[in-house]
Amino acid sequence: MNQALDLGLDALSLASIYFLAAIGLAITFGVMGVINMAHGEFIMMGAYTGYVVQQVVPDYTLSIIIALPLAFAVTFAAGVAMERLVIRHLYHRPLETLLATFGISVALQQIAKNIFGTQARPLTSPAWLDGAWVLNDVVSISYIRIAIFVLALIFLTLLLFVLNRTRLGLEVRAVTQNPRMAASMGINPDRINMLTFGLGSGIAGIAGVAIGLFAKVTSELGSDYIVQSFMTVVVGGVGNIWGTLAGATLIGFLQKGIEFFNPSNTLAAQTYMIIFIIIFIQFRPRGIIALKGRAAGD
């Protein structure tokens, strides 16, 4: 019983990490349909932003508070720049987009290596996030993981609010559903695409700060999450924030479950999981939460 609870908490926190890593992608890939292989590098950029801020501001609490919006600003700018310079010219050409963004991903990793070296950099969490919430001998969960869970919840709410309740969200949905008609209604699709891509990238940056708090900050940080992020979005159902949540939950629990039965071998656990996902996609190609009704169209 205790063990199951502990496993459940572990799975939940893994799910929230995946959710955080994937939610930016849920916008750029899920909503806009852009395959951005450099998404992981935006996460990395966010984590390094956190590290740099800590070099300047020694107080760990304050530095995190500064790092979160700053990471958003840095990756938002990087995302906008990338959309204007590269992605914009490749809409509706997924293969070229994939190659171009993969190239950018490699380049960004190398730039990070040149600036920060190959050695892992620490992003230290403030003291009040150290330690763990101990229920009993078996069940405990570290405060960082709780904080990440809370952050994931905040993002879910924030994003649902932006997409469904604001003017920007309405224009984003109009442009993604029918860019030409949106333009005929007076909406500037170029501007909306740029902002949407920036938003997705900015959220990846914030996720980077959170992930940096428990993982080592290296130039390869992003590539550790890119595959999981795409899996999360695809399994959950493309074009849908709730789908990303469902996908992250499924993958988080699945991974922890497999690891529990096969504790010594994480590689095998990953393999089993990917096999499961391949089979799952055969039966539900549109993901867990598929769009329904006449409106879903093709």
Binding site: R173, A174, Q177, N178, A182, A295
Partner: peptide, 12 residues
Amino acid sequence: FPLMTVRENLET
């Protein structure tokens, strides 16, 4: 816009 409500379509 197929996935937006009638009101949202008007609001575009």
